[in-house]
Amino acid sequence: MSDGIKKFMFVNTKAPYGTVYALESLEVVLISAAFDQDVSLVFCDDGVFQIMDKQNTEASGMKNFSNAYKALGDYDINKLYVEKESLEERGLTLDSLMDLTYEDEDDDWAEKPSINLVSRAELADLMDQQDVVISS
């Protein structure tokens, strides 16, 4: 692309807490926002567990980093794709997930949902359109 903006897609496939992949990926995503690129996130396979609502780490004593996903809108990251089949295989629906939104600067700061439910086939197309795909 001539304007130097590339399409970056971060594909999250791992459950949070059991391994450090989810947290590390989130940090890379937040850092990438400083470079004004076209960033999107995918949650598929066990990655859908990363944005589960009502995560509560009080008893386990781990750092609950789920609230940081709610700040993605502030970082102008508002294209989050969740794979429908991955939710279904895990007995989940969109209602199981956090309500992640952004404020649309071009529409009088109206609050809009960041999460888009997509099929496996649609996801394959989306991945095909990227300049850079980073999986974890």
């Binding site: 937040l30 609230n67 940081a68 700040a71």
Partner: peptide
């Protein structure tokens, strides 16, 4: 307290 992250300057400015 709310987001568990320290915001980047750009985000801080906007907020």
């Amino acid at each position: 307290e709310e987001y568990q992250i320290a915001p980047a300057v750009r985000v801080l400015t906007k907020a």
